[in-house]
Design a protein around this nucleic acid. Structure first.
Lengths: 139, 139
DNA sequence: CAATAATTTATAATGATTCTAAAGTAGTGT
DNA sequence: ACACTACTTTAGAATCATTATAAATTATTG
């Protein structure tokens, strides 16, 4: 059980007041050993499953996650059109996507060789480089 | 003006009968010098703008594009959650995404150094490796 | 503790995509 | 050319994710 003040600070720095609902979301997202991937729907189900506290409306989940995303406390991962995933691992890294199971697996920056982009676009700078490695059962 | 028989074959091999609507879509997609990126909504507007022939319903556009995607005549590109793009360039390549303008630019395979994935997932094989380079104005 | 501004919530609105069922069209055999 | 069958098209309905709304609730500040 990590310190609430960490979460309160995370919320404040994202421009949000700490409320029961937002703190519950923080606990689910950040009070854990390993980073993880989730969808809004999945996160919402996790909240319902806890059912220790009262429910949190979908709108609040969206608002909170979007604020965290903007602040950089969460990363959005786009794999295919039909699902939006978020990642509590905000470090510079990439992903495997298992097309058989729709599962995401982290691919550390150190596990990918330097990516050499040889084409320059005049007047533009590179914001980020994202690699998605799609995998499937090898039979 | 390219030969219709090419389009008819493309449709047939995708499991679709050649119809006026589908041929019109083929012309827009494949009867051009350079490959290009489009969204369903954008393609639909292109069809309306031609207004030489009768309109094509959205459902037909979706059906046809999905069949081409499955057959591999089109590639789907996932950049962010709110837009699905397609690419008539089905060769192995990557993309720049201009976050200021929401514009996609091809990044040829030859313009990216070899991508070295050092992590192996047991029992899985790599289907594809996709690189997205997000760019913006460099001020 | 009261006043104010932010928040939560259920529900409505929106937008993309898929489904449906009736009307239209292509392919096949004659 | 004709008719039959199966596939298509279409408008509109249905669905799903996400965002907007507006009234009731709650946090903050003095």
């Amino acid at each position: 059980m990590s310190n609430n003040s960490v979460f309160i600070e995370k919320l404040r720095s994202s421009g949000l007041r700490p409320t029961r609902q937002r703190l519950q979301i923080c606990k689910l997202l950040f009070d854990r050993q390993n980073t993880f991937h989730f969808s809004i729907q999945g996160l919402s189900k996790m909240i319902v499953n806890q059912h220790k506290e009262k429910k949190v409306s979908l709108a609040t989940v969206y608002n909170t996650i979007n604020a965290f995303k903007q602040k950089g406390y969460l990363k959005e991962i786009s794999i295919n059109s039909d699902k939006t995933y978020f990642d509590t691992n905000t470090s510079n890294h990439h992903h495997f996507f298992n097309e058989s199971t729709n599962e995401l697996i982290d691919l550390d920056n150190s596990e990918v060789g330097k990516i050499d982009i040889r084409k320059k676009i005049p007047g533009k700078k590179i914001n980020s480089i994202e690699v998605i490695v799609k995998i499937a059962n090898s039979n």
